[in-house]
């Protein structure tokens, strides 16, 4: 049993904090929030230059290959700063999944661009009334030179800017995982504004042709890929929640220590300090279950129950 944060990982965290901190001052975020897309291209570039987009990408594909756990560390820091960058969808849902389940040529084609920040590949795991990408309502029909995908995915991040979107569909021969080009014929994108303030997209596909080279996995391999993508995404979102909550708690502690009413800092009222203490306990719980899930995935071990536990927290 070892909870040690390696020196390498500590460095990643420090570097991420520094860059994300610089780009997420309140004024800068205000400007970004005025944009149609909640995406900071400059920040994305800075993260790429620091190597942070390639944390879980092989060195031969332009990454620095520190593994999945390090990626959750980045997600936590993105959460802490509510930075406008699609790390979960692009780096976890798409890149990390491709890394483990894509063909060599797919990896060579997409991962270097993701690591260098020049290409976005997103992932679409959700449908209406269905959050399980291993049993999608979207369908795929085999055809010469590839297959045709029909159906709807929802709340897809970066769908307008992405070169490809990783998603699953059901075919007569079983599950299939493909990379869909959102600019291909038959694709319609409708903006969807969601709670986080981001613009996401409803992705409607009507017999969209996907060439063979963009088929990532089929049958049981496709199932493994979607299971992995879902678990990794949930874990990354949990890590992000750790960052968001931890930061909220700390600014609450700080603010209530400064804010005075009845001649004293309101933090000296137990009704206040105990609520913050309860947050502290909850966040420690969330952190522990997230670390457990992330370290198991990192080692390629079964992590289903542990991921669900983190998700519940």
């Amino acid at each position: 049993m070892d909870f040690t944060v390696s020196e390498e990982l500590g460095n990643v965290q420090q570097l991420a904090q520094q860059i994300l901190g610089d780009f997420t001052e309140v004024d800068k975020l205000k400007v970004i929030d005025q944009q149609d897309e909640r995406f900071d291209a400059e920040l994305w570039k800075a993260l790429a230059e620091a190597g942070l987009l390639g944390l879980d990408i092989a060195e031969s594909q332009g990454g620095i290959d520190l593994g999945f756990y390090s990626l959750t560390t980045l997600c936590e820091e993105v959460g802490r700063t509510v930075a406008p960058v699609p790390v979960v969808e692009v780096l976890v849902g798409a890149a990390s999944t491709l890394r483990r389940f894509g063909s060599d040529s797919q990896k060579d084609q997409w991962l270097p661009g993701i690591a260098s920040g020049t290409t976005l590949v997103s992932a679409a795991l959700e449908e209406y009334n269905n959050d399980d990408p291993t049993s999608p309502a979207c369908t795929g029909n085999k055809m010469d030179g590839g297959c045709a995908i029909s159906g709807t995915k929802i709340c897809v991040s970066s769908a307008n800017a992405a070169a490809r979107i990783l998603l699953s569909a059901q075919t007569e021969e079983g599950l299939i995982v493909v990379l869909v080009d959102p600019k291909a014929a038959g694709v319609t994108l409708h903006p969807q504004h969601v709670t986080s303030g981001e613009t996401r997209y409803e992705l409607v596909m009507d017999k969209v042709q996907v060439p063979t080279e963009d088929i990532v996995a089929t049958a049981s391999e496709a199932r493994s890929a979607m299971t992995w993508a879902l678990q990794a995404t949930r874990t990354a979102l949990s890590a992000m929640a750790v960052g968001v909550c931890d930061k909220m708690m700390r600014i609450t502690g700080q603010y209530t220590s400064e804010r005075e009413q009845f001649g004293r800092a309101i933090a000296t009222f137990q009704a206040v300090s105990h609520r913050v203490a309860d947050c502290y306990i909850d966040i420690e719980c969330l952190r522990l279950v997230t670390q457990q899930a992330a370290s198991l995935i990192d080692q390629g071990r079964p992590a289903n129950d542990e991921v669900l536990t983190a998700k519940i927290w």
């Binding site: 502690g253 209530t256 933090a267 000296t268 137990q270 300090s273 203490a277 502290y280 306990i281």
Partner: peptide
């Protein structure tokens, strides 16, 4: 214990 968490964990001022 919650007093301790607020003080030692978050550096909030001591509750009176």
């Amino acid at each position: 214990q919650r007093d301790i968490i607020a003080m030692a964990g978050l550096w909030m001022p001591r509750t009176r």
